[in-house]
Design a protein around this nucleic acid. Structure first.
Length: 773
DNA sequence: CCTCCTACTACGCGG
DNA sequence: TAGTAGGAGG
């Protein structure tokens, strides 16, 4: 009544609202209502359908901050999965900006593969592995498959290991173990041996104490399925679960996620069907469509307000993607200004393309554009090379993301193989790689011997070697060399817990003669390789131990590049998903390259639509400037071929796109003209100006990158030379040896026998090499 | 067993 | 074209 006492603000009045706002945590400021819903709807399943540039990452990171701020869960009780390392890293950085140090405690933030690897190491024994298992990359995988094919006497010309690897991958992506592969599909490789080869491969992996990328998921899935208590533990542990880029989950990931989230059901998935570009590795967009069925009562939040791109860019992208039939369909809008229209430029060939883009960037740079805000997004990584060469020439600082990576270089892989052998004596692939590097006189014959014995006894090569050097199966020279090598490894392995890993690495590389090998090498690359080895040792310092370092490089192959200097980023469209730049260059919009021919051949319309989504992803990375290019000639496998502009060019709305002539007088600038200009005019071979120009002075590309094979992993291992089992033979028995011929057993010591050979005299040999004589 | 040469394939995207 | 795998010869 009175205006003087007991005054309280009226509920809902101005003062109350202002007061509430003051109490609202600052991180919620500036979120639009939909974003706030995505952040504040904490309990129960939530699906956030977020268009490109609608603040999805912001919503996700704020949600995590909110969970922690309300005390709903601690950092380590939150599971947050992404697809790429880049996305995981960025998410951690952004959370750190919101909550500070707390972000470091989020030990369950990472890629599906990294999180799975973590879980798997904790329970390795339950799926028949040791905790220090090795994670093989594609290269190792293929080498191993080659061995399997060889052992099965399958012609690897007709049935390439590569093809088998792809098939096994796709089975794993779908969550299929060898027994679950349908007969029809198993039929399709090596006359029905597909599933059998898959099974053999898995068997070999177990012996090697190794998994491939697909196994990380599949094996942890199996772990959960076969161990209810373990599953229950994780279901309880993770109070909140967040999944980024949900449209990219494959079946195995989907099953994994569904199991792990059934406990508390606080799962929040964020995705955009228009940005589904990983169909080729088994992603199922259906997962996103099925969400409501899988999680009844799920709340759906739609983010459609675009904050990133200016009007014309958004219009162009929306128009383009509207050509797809398979989409949920959503309408992005922006309140921002129209800005610049995306430009379209036809150039003569890929070299001109690189030149024009280089000049354009320099011009923007003069106007104050930061190079950090400029990106070139290509369809295929081989396109990067042209830019690299040109930028080196004109001195434009650039950064290749996801190209030929540091850890894929020959010398780095060799060095890692040494470390893997130290950490993980069962790692045959690593051992095989370096037994004779540098040359030790351990050639094919020796390796074959080790293999034969190892296979027969089902033991790793290193262990086989250990046993074999105690006998006379080998000639003295290789025997001595192998003995030394094993002794070296034993010595290094003893230091694993006491010596800092980078010092150990240096020691290994020196004492093995590996560094010396490159010092002796007179080729021009040798110096660079030695530099890289130094860099590797330096990089190791940052890790707590060898195991941590090896884990890091199996899962996170890219080095975090320095940000000291501003650089233009060059990367694939796939790698660019989730990122944004002021200015984006989109070269190579030509039929066959983009959309990629193989995508069309293999997937038909679905393939085309995925390619179109990729184009959409590319365009929507741009905040202010998007520049599309197509060339009339491109070098494919060393041959210059005339090309035709991409059909996606025709999918762009003319009113929102500006056609720009290439400054250097490319006469086929306008796309209406150039679309067919090149088709028949020049014929297809060596009379084209492009070819002629190509014959002109081309600086010899000085580029170094030798992908080869190999990878890393983990600590400590035991080697048991077995000597106690009894032999099939007793003294006096007649036996036959492949190399030494017939003889009589003199003495027996476990699996080692001394035999008096009729011709070769007395030798100590292994039982497994003997037959009844 | 090593080195040199020839022949073949590959240039689709990632953990 | 380039990088590598496999074969021949020393």
């Amino acid at each position: 009544m009175t205006d003087f006492d007991d005054y309280a603000p009226q509920p809902g009045g101005l003062a109350a609202r202002a007061a509430a706002a003051a109490q609202r945590p600052p991180y919620l400021d500036g979120l639009n209502p939909e974003q706030r819903a995505a952040v504040e709807t904490l309990d129960g399943p939530v699906l956030v359908l977020a268009g490109a540039g609608t603040g999805k990452t912001r919503a996700l990171t704020t949600r995590i901050a909110h969970i922690m701020a309300l005390g709903k869960a601690r950092a380590w009780e939150i599971l947050a999965v992404t697809f790429t390392n880049k996305a995981a890293r960025e998410m951690r950085e952004r959370i750190e900006m919101l909550v500070g140090e707390g972000a470091q405690a989020m030990q369950w933030l990472g890629t599906f593969h990294a999180v799975s690897a973590n879980i798997l190491r904790r329970h390795a024994e339950l799926v028949g592995l040791k905790p220090n298992f090795t994670i093989l990359d594609t290269d190792d995988q293929i080498r191993l498959l080659k061995q399997v094919l060889q052992a099965e006497n399958i012609d690897d010309k007709r049935w390439p290991a590569r093809a088998l690897a792809m098939r096994i991958d796709s089975w794993k992506n779908r969550g299929l173990s060898p027994g679950q592969v349908s007969a029809g599909e198993a039929e399709s490789f090596a006359n029905g041996k597909g599933a059998q080869l898959y099974a053999l491969y898995q068997e070999r992996l177990k012996i090697l104490n190794a998994v491939d990328f697909g196994d990380l998921l599949l094996e942890s899935l199996r772990l959960f399925r076969e161990n209810a208590d373990v599953l229950a533990d994780y279901q309880q542990r993770f109070k909140y679960i967040l999944v980024d880029e949900y449209q990219d989950t494959n079946t195995a990931q989907y099953l994994w996620l569904r199991l792990i989230s059934q406990g508390r059901r606080n799962v929040c998935c964020v995705g955009d069907d228009d940005q589904s570009v990983y169909g080729w590795r088994g992603a199922e967009v259906e997962n996103i469509l099925r969400f409501e069925q899988d999680f009844p009562g799920a709340k759906i939040v739609r983010l459609e307000r675009n904050y990133r791109s200016s009007g014309h860019i958004l219009a162009a992208a929306s128009h383009l993607i509207a050509h797809n039939e398979d989409r949920l369909g959503k309408t992005l809008f922006t309140d921002g200004e129209d800005g610049e229209k995306p430009t379209l430029t036809g150039v003569w060939d890929s070299q001109e393309e690189a030149r024009v883009i280089g000049e354009d960037i320099e011009q923007l740079q003069r106007k104050g554009q930061s190079l950090e805000e400029v990106a070139i997004l290509v369809r295929a990584s081989f396109q990067m090379r042209e830019f690299e060469e040109r930028f080196v020439e004109i001195g434009l600082p650039y950064r290749i993301i996801g190209g030929a990576r540091f850890y894929e270089r020959l010398e780095i892989r060799d060095a890692l193989a040494y470390l893997r052998c130290v950490a993980q004596p069962a790692d045959d692939l690593a051992f095989e790689r370096i037994v004779n590097t540098p040359k030790r006189g351990l050639g094919d014959a020796t390796i074959q011997l080790l293999h034969a014995f190892g296979r027969r006894e089902r033991i790793p090569l290193m262990q086989a070697a250990r046993v074999l050097v105690e006998t006379e199966e080998m000639k003295p020279k290789p025997r001595g060399a192998l003995k030394n090598l094993i002794a070296d490894f034993d010595r290094w392995r003893d230091l694993i817990d006491t010596k800092p890993q980078h010092e150990l690495a240096e020691m290994v590389l020196d004492e093995s003669g590996y560094t010396e090998m490159w010092r002796q090498d007179k080729t021009p690359e040798a110096a660079g390789r030695l530099e890289n080895l130094k860099e590797l040792v330096r990089a190791m310092e940052e890790f707590p131990d060898l195991a941590a370092f090896l884990e890091h490089i199996s899962l996170v192959m890219d080095t975090e590049e320095s940000k000291e200097q501003e650089r233009v980023s060059v990367m694939t469209l796939h790698a660019a998903k989730g990122l944004e730049f002021e200015t984006v260059y989109l070269p190579g919009w030509e039929e066959g390259l983009f959309p990629h021919q193989r995508s069309l051949d293999e997937q038909g319309r679905a393939g085309l639509e995925e390619e179109r989504r990729l184009a959409y992803v590319g365009l929507t990375r741009a905040k202010r400037r998007a520049r599309i290019f197509f060339a009339s000639n491109r070098r494919i496998r060393g041959l210059w071929q005339p090309t035709v502009p991409s059909r996606f060019v025709d999918n762009l709305p003319p009113t929102h796109v500006e056609v720009v002539e290439a400054p250097s007088g490319a006469h086929y600038g306008g796309y209406a003209v150039s679309r067919f200009a090149n088709l028949d005019v020049y014929g297809s071979d060596y009379s084209t100006p492009g070819w002629k120009r190509a014959q002109g002075a081309r600086p010899a590309p000085a580029r170094e990158s030798r992908p080869s094979s190999r990878q890393p992993l983990t600590i400590e291992g035991e080697v048991v030379a077995r000597s106690s089992s009894t032999s099939r033979w007793n003294a006096g028995a007649r036996v036959f040896h492949m190399k030494f011929g017939p003889g009589t057993v003199a003495t027996v010591d476990g699996n080692k026998l001394t035999v008096d050979f009729d011709k070769a005299g007395r030798k100590m040999v292994l039982e497994s090499f003997l037959e009844a004589g």
